Amino acid sequence: MLAFLFYLGAQAGAYAQDVAGASDHPEVGRYQGAVIDFYSQKGYDELRLPTGPLGREQRDRPDDWQVSLEGKTTSIRYVGPASRSVLEIIRNHQRALEGNGFEIVFTCRGQQECSPPQIPTFWDAARAGIGLPTTWNSTVYLVARRDGPEATIWVGMIGVEVPARGENPLMPNLAVTIVETLPMETDQIAVIEASELEQTLVRDGKIAIYGIHFDFDSADIQPQSADQIEELASLLSGNETLRVLIVGHTDGEGSFDYNLLLSQRRAQAVVDALANGHGIAAQRLQPAGAGMVSPVATNRTEEGRARNRRVEIVEMMGN
């Protein structure tokens, strides 16, 4: 039996150092001798992880084989130790997770068990935005969860092997994603009242609204957006000659074309809510999707991405 080399809170060997500011997650730890070369932590984010194999007929039905998660996220990439297989590393992690009360939801190896050849969709979801070499034939994937009184913790890990220089034939790379499904801090964005909307439009010709929220990766408006939409309807009802652009904006994550389409769909959803729910004439409302082309902050931080995800109201002049 392979020696159980997994341990919590250990530091990497003397041959290399972790990237600055990195640390192991207390629920996961690390395999002895591995080094962290990527680390990111966000107080709140949204992502999906595979919970089953991907069949060819499921490519366009992500809900069939993925779980949608939101909460505090930690992303870590480990490199090494040389000559260890990713299967050995992940199986050691699996034993440790099970010993810590986690349920193994799904695990698979390579294209035979995880995803058909030439379909990268599974691997893109499994690495959850963490860069990895695309040597999918050697891939091992695992996802686990543990329910608790305060949060459900999900752990996804995907490992690949790449040739290493020198005498060591293989170098494992392991991407680990931990999601603690803590509730997002709410009531952080105040509803902008109709009077302030009007004043800002007169002064600036546009206003960014952060009180309209959508489901993750969707144009469905969340219920807590109702107050902000009502204030926008009040502005339009009190100014019957006012015509506006409803412009959807996304952050910089994901592809350009996808975000452009998503932002257009979200803008249209706001138009529909105003027209169908509040009787605002649809010809006074023009939906437009800007995608990621007009950020107001850096996309390198969660705080910046949150500022970039917005709906803007732009006054339209003329007929």
Results as ranks from 00 to 15, higher is better:
Glu180Thr: 01
Ile89Lys: 15
Leu132Lys: 09
Pro50Glu: 04
Gly29Lys: 07
Ser218Tyr: 08
Leu174Trp: 01
Phe122Met: 05
Leu47Asp: 10
Val105Asn: 04
Pro172Trp: 08
Pro120Val: 12
Arg300Ala: 15
Ile313Glu: 08
Arg243Met: 14
Val293Ala: 00
Ile209Gln: 06
Ala144Thr: 09
Asn276Tyr: 09
Val191Ser: 11
Glu198Ala: 10
Met316Glu: 14
Thr134Pro: 02
Ile221Gln: 00
Ala219Met: 00
Gly13Phe: 04
Ile104Ser: 10
Ala96Asn: 07
Leu235Lys: 06
Thr181Arg: 12
Glu185Ala: 14
Phe122Pro: 10
Asp37Gly: 07
Gly205Pro: 15
Leu5Glu: 02
Leu182Gln: 07
Glu231Leu: 14
Leu49Gln: 05
Gln264Pro: 11
Thr301Tyr: 15
Ser68His: 11
Glu253Lys: 14
Arg266Ile: 01
Gly80Asp: 14
Thr186Glu: 15
Val244Ser: 05
Ser225Thr: 05
Ile209Gly: 09
Glu57Cys: 03
Glu57Asp: 05
Ala226Leu: 06
Ser255Arg: 13
Pro287Lys: 08
Gly238Lys: 14
Ala194Asp: 03
Gly99Asp: 07
Lys72Ile: 00
Val247Tyr: 08
Ala275Tyr: 05
Ala194Tyr: 12
Gly318Arg: 11
Arg165Lys: 08
Gln11Asp: 13
Ala190Cys: 01
Asp217Met: 08
Gly211Gln: 07
His93Pro: 15
Asn100Asp: 09
Met157Ala: 14
Arg30Glu: 05
Ser263Lys: 01
Thr186Trp: 01
Glu150Gly: 12
Leu236Phe: 04
Leu274His: 04
Val105Glu: 04
Leu182Cys: 08
Arg307Val: 09
Ala219Gln: 02
Ala128Phe: 01
Arg146Ile: 11
Ile104Gly: 02
Glu312Gln: 06
Gly238Ala: 11
Ile76Lys: 00
Phe102Cys: 03
Leu142Ile: 05
Gln41Asn: 10
Glu46Gln: 13
Ala269Arg: 00
Ile246His: 01
Leu174Asp: 00
Arg145His: 08
Leu182Asp: 10
Pro149Met: 11
Leu97Glu: 07
Pro62Asp: 07
Thr177Phe: 00
Lys72His: 14
Glu231Cys: 03
Arg300Ser: 05
Asp18Tyr: 03
Ala10Cys: 06
Asp45Trp: 07
Trp65Gln: 02
Pro183Glu: 12
Ala20Val: 04
Arg145Lys: 14
Phe214Trp: 12
Gly148Met: 14
Val270Phe: 15
Tyr210Pro: 08
Gly304Lys: 12
Ser68Glu: 09
Ile119Met: 06
Gly291Tyr: 09
Ala128Arg: 07
Asp215Pro: 02
Leu54Cys: 10
Ala128Thr: 04
Ala125Asp: 00
Val28Ala: 11
Tyr141Ser: 06
Thr186Gly: 11
Leu261Asp: 13
